Computed example of a mutant assay.
Amino acid sequence: MLPVREKIPHVVVRILFTKTGDLQYISHLDLHRAFTRMLVRAGVPLWYSEGYSPHPRLAFATPLSVGAESEYELVDVNIVGDAETLNPAALFALLRDTHIPGLTVKDLYLPTRPFSAITHADYTLRFRTAGADAALAARCAEALASSPLVVLKRTKKGERDVDISPQIRSVRAAFEDGEVVIRARLAADSANFLNPEYLVKILRGAGLVMCGNPIEEEYSILRTAVYSGDTLFR
């Protein structure tokens, strides 16, 4: 008979971090590995699952496409200890100076709500595109505010045409520093998550952006916050 493993107390901490620069090009699996290595190097007492293949428990919040950056990423990490004796400030100090370029820990705390409470996320999309001016920005805002906005969307049941307009809570556009800048709040719950790349597809399909020289034109996507209703999610 195998010996019974003693139950090790553990607690979940939530980490707020950035994913910018070259990190925008790594996959979710690579991010998981990089984050785990960073925690180990920092000396964080990770809690490992039981069984024949013990592994640390990390759970990331909303998905982020490869090629998109974020100033507001969240991950829940199981660590050894209990809520009464845990010192979040001490753990944050361990991680503050141990980071990967583009991955900066901004906060660490005990969570009070599950990730399932997330409903929306804010994004900033910047287009360096031919003909960029205030008039083009206004046309982009008008296009994204119209309804229906039908795109070919990949779902668990395959590809199908979907009207994404109900998943766009708000959208604003401006002309800043030679770029068309779109700021949008999009659905981010598990059942209605909207990838901001679909906004790019809508605007490109309408002939508004990214229709000129592909060598000279470019765009970027940055997630800036996530919400539960109208409240910033933490």
Rank of each mutant, 00 (worst) to 15 (best):
G102R: 02
D22S: 14
P63D: 02
P56H: 04
L29S: 10
M38L: 15
F175D: 00
V12C: 12
A206M: 14
I202H: 11
R57Q: 10
V11Y: 01
L152Y: 13
T62W: 00
T36A: 12
A134K: 09
I79Y: 01
K153S: 10
S190N: 03
P111S: 01
R126I: 05
W47I: 08
T155M: 08
F127R: 06
A143N: 12
A135D: 13
C140T: 02
K157W: 05
R33L: 14
R169W: 14
L144I: 01
A121Q: 10
T98Y: 10
R14E: 01
D82C: 12
E179M: 13
A135M: 07
A187C: 08
L2E: 13
T155E: 12
I182Q: 06
E159D: 14
I168R: 11
Y123R: 12
L58R: 00
A188D: 04
G207H: 02
E84K: 15
V162W: 06
G205S: 07
G102A: 03
T231M: 15
G178W: 03
M210F: 03
T112K: 13
E176S: 14
R160A: 14
P214G: 07
I118P: 02
E216K: 12
N213D: 15
L2N: 11
A173C: 11
L125V: 06
L29C: 07
A121L: 07
Y198H: 11
F127P: 06
A59L: 13
R126A: 13
R139M: 07
N195R: 09
K153N: 08
T224L: 11
S27T: 13
P88T: 07
P101T: 06
I215F: 15
A121M: 08
R234F: 04
R204I: 12
T36G: 09
L208D: 02
F92G: 11
T20W: 01
Y25H: 14
A61Y: 03
H120N: 07
I202Y: 09
A191I: 08
G212I: 04
E69L: 08
R33W: 13
V209R: 01
L64R: 02
R37Y: 05
C211M: 14
D76M: 00
P166I: 05
N192E: 12
Y198I: 07
P114H: 00
V75E: 01
E73K: 01
K106I: 11
E69Y: 07
P3Q: 00
R204M: 10
E84R: 15
P3E: 03
L144W: 06
A90H: 05
V11T: 12
G158D: 00
A225K: 11
R5P: 06
R37T: 04
L194E: 01
A83Y: 08
A145T: 15
T119E: 05
Y52W: 12
R57W: 05
L152P: 07
S49V: 02
N87W: 10
C140E: 02
S49C: 00
